[in-house]
Nucleic acid binder design. Sequence first.
RNA 1: CGGGACGUAGCUCAGCCUGGUAGAGCACUUGCUUUGGGAGCAAGACGUCGCAGGUUCGAAUCCUGUCGUCCCGACCA
Length: 579
Amino acid sequence: MRWSQTFVPTLKESPSDAEITSHKLLLRAGLVRKLTGGLYTFLPMGLRVLRKIEQIIREEMNRAGGIEVLMPALQPPEIWQQSGRYETARDVLFKVKDSAQREWVLGPTHEEVITHLAASEINSYRQMPKNFYQIQTKFRDEIRPRFGLMRAKEFIMKDAYSFDATDEGAMASYRRMYDAYTRIFSRCGLKAFPVEADTGVIGGNYSHEFMVPAETGENDVVYCETSGYAANIEKATSRGPLLVTPSASTGAAPEKFATPGVVTIEALTAAPYGVEAHRQIKTLVYVADSDVILILLRGDDQLNEAKLMARTGAIQVRPATPEECASTLGARPGSLGAVAGVPAKVKVYADDALRGASGMVTGANDDGFHYRHVDIERDIRVGQWADFRTVRAGELAVASGQPLKIRRAIEVGHVFKLGTKYSEKMGAMFLAESGQRFPCVMGCYGIGVTRTLQAVIEQCHDDNGISWPLGVAPYQVCLTPLSVMAGSQPLVQAEKLYAELTAAGIEVLIDDRDERPGVKFKDSELVGFPLRVNLGEKSLAKGEIEIKPRNGAMFAVPIDQATTRVLEWLRQQAAPAVG
RNA sequence: CGGGACGUAGCUCAGCCUGGUAGAGCACUUGCUUUGGGAGCAAGACGUCGCAGGUUCGAAUCCUGUCGUCCCGACCA
């Protein structure tokens, strides 16, 4: 391809609406342009990278036994009502009406469609396992589109759905996808690693996310370098807080004392009270679906809402308003507690870190008063103990006992074992060998294709621009004749090289623009081609052509060896086969 | 939806506080020079100052509303 005949609108400056590096580079390198918030047009270079990533995904999915299909993006609301997600996922569902005012849904994901298909087509255990996948545009009414392609209203996703007759079969399907994902991200040149994950709205009971470490990521990953443990912070556990919870009971009864104006944990740690945060019981009032509940945590701990949803089974949780707190407990936030005045219908959950706690201080459900000498198991009616706290860096890993670390990361893929949640609701049943009818055991597996593209940029760039891994680069080689006058040696030699490399199956872009050398050098490095070949009067006069790897030092080769040396370099760089 | 910032040329931004001829750099057009790391000189073209109301003799500037964008939180690939 000739630069002058394609479309690569590079920018010297970053558009003001881009905040993070990968978003700026997407725009500066001319890969995409914004239509409006969360909606982007892919330009030629961006589209080529996208197709490369899709092809890698396709090859690895096929290798792992996946069957490619293509499902409609426009879907009838009835199947969403059938699965129950018309309500639970309503916040992300784009809805449209046709001319007869009939409502349709733009698919944010395809469990409903594929399970509907399986319900009518899969009747026997002999037809399984099956793993259907597609690469397709998804629509989500994101509350806040962000960072270019990272979180968009419309994006491209590879989604796959496995159907098995048994739980063991489903685990094997899950494992195959897990391994395929590892290969896919590796072939994309991405350092991505799997972490244990919460299962969120989709539900199910076993899940990993594939994370790309990046400060700009939207996730916190808790990990242990010794044991290899890694989990999304929503799911992560530890051996508990580093400060031990006071537990030697003094036998003293709860005593109410005045704390005028004290409404924070922090304030109670100060003089004249001097109650350290880990000696306090924090009482949170939440509304889980429609029930008001209490969650007790140690004063120095933070509630993990994902865990709260998992433990209570609630679909939606939110903090109660101050008015709801007052009407439930008779006090406002800051003086809440569970020692007295908790209505019988309000369930009290307590975090495991509070087990056996005594000599604690907590709100008295009376504005301006707290209790001291509280023994949680003696004085509070705890309905259920569980892990509700958010792990902090430095706490010890459950398995290894080594300190945990926390880092930010971008989620590029997610594998779920779904179980029979959807197959039961949608009637995807089959006849087993025994003659009994069972629901198919499902798994679902997603990769954010457009997000992966941006994650590669986030991970592979320097001050000069993008540096594409060979496997996903828009072109492998950029030929840069420093003169494009008809008949000039740089152009003649460049055309010759172009013909030879193209014939050898290499993807080559020739920068035939009548621009000064500096402009061409800057642009090729900004767009990020793995290899640039400079053809200038000076070096040609010496019988040489210059080869400049994007990430390495330039070297000169004799003109007649240029093609073979380029091919050799590309062969050496090609990622070793993964398997 | 809550909190914050911002809408002026294709892009980056100044001007606004203190109302009075619409600005700079880059990009674009033409010419000359230059030609191995985002060239120089000269000439030129490009704007309903997001939109709608209001105040005023007069509004980019002050007020109100509205739309849009970006950032922080709840959601997710």
